[in-house]
Amino acid sequence: METKRQALIFQGGWDGHEPVLVARRFKGMLERHGYTCQVYDSQDILADGEKLMEMDLIVPCWTMGEIKPEYRRNISLAVAAGTGLAGCHGGMCDAFRQDVEWQFMTGGQWVSHPGGDGIDYTVNICKGSSPIVEGLEDFPVCSEHYYLHVDPAVEVLATTRFPVVNYYHISNKVVDMPVAWTKFWGNGRVFYCSLGHHDDVFEKFPNAGILMERGLVWAAEGKAYAADRGLTTERFENSAKMY
């Protein structure tokens, strides 16, 4: 019997990022690929570590706020065991600003969006970086332009050029800031895309929707990949005890 593929989405935090709408969109994306999605309006479900271990994918849609250390640890252990972790914009990498282990796991942290919303910029696809971006071309976006502090270990799938607007950072050199990336946390796959200030960005700019949907599925498929190859968390256990 084929195992049912499952995803867990928890939504909340700052309402300005439209967590309910974004969660609903991601649920639809995953259902198109055969996933059964459970959506929760609080973090209380994260207390159930065994349930998280059963998931193929965890999707945080929670901007700012705080997370209990035991909740974050439960997610960390599930992802390390093979469960995927994927999210967008502030819903994943501007969540739980005081929790550095969350930042370590997700691969980056928002620090600014010079100019606010309504900034025109280009997303540049890093061709050949991943099957996630296969066939995608560079595309324009009008939205918040995320400046992030990023883990140098990530695999960058798309970038954008800074600066676009005048702000204090223009005294420094021009940089290509990651927009989307993948990384690993133990045996688990992690995907992040900085687009998604409002839910409709994934409709207005179709390549953004394609990128996000592919990233969600890529992260979710990691659990089966790890199981098929007999990957365990034994090699991580000694270090994990520190947390």
Rank of each mutant, 00 (worst) to 15 (best):
A47R: 13
V156D: 05
P131Y: 04
V150N: 06
T106F: 02
L195A: 05
L216E: 02
A81Y: 02
R235H: 07
Y225A: 13
S42A: 08
I67S: 00
S76M: 09
I45E: 02
G82N: 06
R214N: 15
D94P: 01
D138P: 13
E213F: 12
I132S: 01
F202H: 08
V39G: 12
E101C: 07
D200R: 13
V175C: 07
P69F: 06
V150T: 14
N207H: 14
G34K: 12
A219E: 05
V39H: 11
N166A: 14
I67E: 01
E54M: 08
I75W: 03
Y71I: 03
N172L: 08
V190Y: 04
L211G: 05
W181Y: 14
P60E: 02
F10Y: 15
L77W: 09
R214D: 10
G196C: 04
I58F: 07
F191N: 05
Q38T: 11
G65Y: 02
S239A: 11
N187L: 09
G186D: 09
H17D: 03
F202I: 05
K173S: 10
T160F: 03
K27L: 04
L21T: 07
W185S: 09
H33L: 05
G186E: 10
L231W: 01
L216Q: 02
Y192V: 11
G108M: 01
K241D: 08
H113T: 00
F162S: 07
L195F: 12
R25F: 08
F104G: 03
V79E: 04
H33T: 02
T160G: 15
C193A: 09
N166T: 12
E137K: 12
V100D: 14
W181I: 07
H89K: 03
V201Y: 15
W102M: 00
H113S: 03
C93W: 00
L195N: 07
R24Y: 08
S130Q: 08
G196R: 01
G135T: 10
G16W: 10
R72S: 08
F10S: 04
R24C: 01
S112V: 02
D44S: 13
D44C: 08
P131T: 06
D117K: 07
A180I: 09
P163Q: 03
L52T: 02
H197Q: 05
